[in-house]
């Protein structure tokens, strides 16, 4: 079995999967889209009521949830669109300029 992690732009044709098939789930998780951000959401855990309204609105599945709690952003995949800040009914998310969370 050929794994996606072993495939890159230097891989010879003999080592690529036939027809471009991929045999694993969710290999896109290895791809960093966090570098696309020009604005960055900041999570203020103390203001969060864990209403979860932001979660389904994230186009990049970048808001993890565990044990009923909304966790901090997955900055490797967050593209900084700001929809979460817009839908948050509380002051729990603010957008800052630039690609870095600070």
């Amino acid at each position: 079995m050929i794994y996606a992690k072993d495939i890159n732009e230097r891989t010879p044709w003999q080592d690529l999967t036939p027809g471009g098939e991929i045999y694993e789930p969710g290999t896109a998780r290895d791809f960093d889209t966090g570098t696309w951000r020009t604005n960055t959401p900041i999570f203020h855990v103390e203001a969060c009521k864990h209403c979860m309204l932001c979660v389904p609105f994230c186009p990049d599945s970048a808001i993890p949830v565990k044990d009923g709690k909304r966790l901090d952003f997955d900055y490797m995949h967050c593209k900084g669109c700001g929809i979460c800040e817009d839908v948050c009914p509380f002051p729990a998310i603010t957008m800052v300029t630039g690609g870095v969370a600070k």
Binding site: E9, T11, P12, W13, L16, G19, G20, E21, I22, Y23
Partner: peptide
């Protein structure tokens, strides 16, 4: 199994 990718030019020729 995922079938029928978008191949960028770095892969299309190899395929």
């Amino acid at each position: 199994l995922a079938v029928g990718p978008y191949d960028v030019s770095a892969y299309y020729m190899e395929h």
